[in-house]
């Protein structure tokens, strides 16, 4: 029925579907699904199976995570980083999206909206790199602060945890503004006016009206930020220096420096597993917000 109404002229033949969908999905199979399967297999191996090396099936790589505090505390540290960055993006981005969607009108809004999403299209690596210019010792920020408050002295921000947080928030803030803006824009201004006319205060309007209606955008933004932050390794390396060890950087090391692919694979899948478990735990809360 739906096929009819979409103008498809009845049920598709297998050949039609294979022609239209085949190329895309064969491509995804070869580049995403088979590689992920191969990596899952590798995570159960004792060694990389190249040349004469003997590799056997083992659970050792997963056991290493649970036996050694090092990996566990790093995983925790990465999840904390994800939570801090996501929280800050929400805190900074939501009011920004609200002002854009509800307070500014016409051409000014169009221009400002373009300005906000523009960084989203410019190179992420370059934007992280640009923070090293600002945060470094005797850099722009230190000089500016000391010009106003001479007693402050060196800030020592470069290669610290806060530097990583600032760089990541800068990288991912446009996502949150974008998703919140889309859901806020869908709220009819008349509904807010009606609530105010009926005597609702700002707190009530925000809590009972705006936040519930904007929840899908906030959740989408949070997921879009949280997941990549947990897997980040470039930002901590550039801005964190020796402070920049997270589960992402350790996984990267296994593939590029230590060549312990099975351990790197196991840590990757543990990371994915914990993310999925967290979403499963949060799902009821998400649903309540959504409804």
């Amino acid at each position: 029925m739906a096929a009819q109404s979409a103008g498809g002229g009845g049920r598709p033949t297998v050949r039609t579907l294979a022609t239209l969908l085949g190329p895309a999905y064969v491509w995804l199979l070869l580049t995403i699904f088979l590689p992920l399967s191969a990596m899952l297999y590798f995570s159960f191996l004792s060694d990389v199976p190249v040349g004469a090396r003997e590799a056997e099936l083992t659970l050792e790589n997963y056991a290493a995570f649970f036996e050694r505090d090092f990996y566990r505390s790093l995983m925790l540290r990465s999840f904390q980083l994800g939570a801090v960055v996501t929280g800050l993006c929400l805190l900074i981005g939501f009011p920004c999206a609200y002002i854009l969607a509800k307070s500014i009108k016409g051409r000014a809004r169009e221009a400002l909206f373009l300005l906000v999403i523009l960084p989203f299209w410019t190179n992420a690596l370059v934007r992280v790199f640009s923070w090293t210019m600002v945060l470094r010792g005797n850099g722009v920020l230190e000089r500016a602060v000391n010009a106003v408050f001479p007693e402050v002295g060196p800030l020592g921000l470069m290669f610290t945890y806060p530097a990583i947080v600032v760089g990541l928030v800068h990288s991912y803030l446009p996502y949150m503004i974008l998703t919140c803006y889309v859901s806020l824009q869908a709220i009819d201004d008349d509904v807010i006016d009606a609530a105010r006319a009926l005597g609702a205060g700002w707190g009530t309007i925000l809590r009972r009206l705006v936040l519930p209606l904007a929840a899908p955008g906030m959740i989408a933004g949070a997921v879009l930020i949280f997941v990549p932050v947990i897997g980040s390794f470039m930002e901590p390396r550039i801005l964190g220096g020796t402070q920049g060890t997270f589960i992402g950087t350790v996984i990267e090391d296994q593939f590029t420096a230590v060549f312990n692919w099975p351990l790197g694979a196991a840590l990757s899948f543990l990371m994915l597993g914990f993310v999925l478990a967290l979403f499963a735990l949060a799902a009821p809360a998400f649903r309540r917000l959504d409804g």
């Binding site: 699904f33 590689p35 897997g231 990267e252 990757s268 990371m271």
Partner: peptide, 21 residues
């Protein structure tokens, strides 16, 4: 199935490609 390429961290997708290729 269109979701994994977007939703899984690039670190994992990238290393998986490295291993598989």
């Amino acid at each position: 199935l269109l979701l994994p390429p977007i939703a899984i961290p690039w670190l994992i997708v990238g290393t998986a490609m490295l291993v598989f290729f």
